[in-house]
Amino acid sequence: MSDAALAVRGLTVHFRVRRGLVGSRVVRAVDGVDLALGPGETLGVAGESGSGKSTIARSLVHLTRPNGGTITLGETDVTSLRGAALRRYRRRMQMVYQDPYDSLDPRMTVRDAIGEALAVRGLSRDRRPGEVARLLSRVNLPDALAARYPGQLSGGQRQRVSIARALAVEPDVIICDEAVAALDVSIRAQVLNLLKDIQRDTGVAYLFISHDLSTLRFVADRVAIMYVGRVVEHGPSLELFAEPLHPYTRALIAAVPSVTARGTKRLHLAGEPPDPANPPTGCPFHPRCPEAIDECRRVRPELTVVGPGRSVACHVAVRSFRSPRSAAEPSR
């Protein structure tokens, strides 16, 4: 485990939600999630709203305190760090946020925003302008932008500045929480290419959180699919998308509107994700699942390894793997 940039074990985040005048309920936003990320690797986390993917991001950067589990960065357990010790570790894990209009202080110039990060890194004042220029060119922005305020930049430019700010502290891991979701398609492609280039050059690892499967397929080495606070399927990106095992993953893929598969009528998932404060018994997906069997209503399936790097939390899928025919060679 020592070669992992980031290891998350049994991460659990509960929120207390007030219900009515008296009483409250516990929402298990994240419920025992394991994730591992090697240096220079990209792990994609996919799921719909309420799946807990953004809560994972926020607890990893200590914006939300987890109720259980451990977060290991390199060889240090950072889960319960506080104060100065936490500050020292913060810069090793950075985040690029979804909303390019809110993630930069509107009253600070680009130079000051990046400079703030450089100050955290301990760079002396006289060396900062050069470094700001270097970082801006790293994210393909002209040096002239340094004097501008975020209000004078386009969405794509702001997101590049956010990336530059994250890079300024030389982190091991950058969490991209829907980092390209708010951008126009043509700009999105530019930023995705940029993120890939940066990874190739610096060896930074990405935890890439997105609801957009085609983006994840392009950017991620491995992908974890989440549903109501848990990982339901995990595997190498191309394999997982070519041959999804969990019925939910299949439904997600089928729902992606694609120009190539236009006109082909596909079965769409009925119903909505359950209320995380009141999840169904057994497998949380069973009320929407076209393949649910009796066991699914009673027993919650655990994430089970079914092949090299692949695991799935589904009674039906695991069973078909255990049966001799399909276990021998999962056919394409």
């Binding site: 200590h62 936490l86 950075q94 946020y97 993630s103 202080d105 990060a117 700010r165 502290v169």
Partner: peptide
């Protein structure tokens, strides 16, 4: 709750500095 304040926290900027600057 604004993201730029979160971003400063994530960078490891001190609380006093965050208040003063952001």
């Amino acid at each position: 709750e604004r993201e730029f304040v979160n971003a400063a926290r994530t960078l490891g900027v001190r609380h006093a500095t965050i208040v003063r600057r952001h």
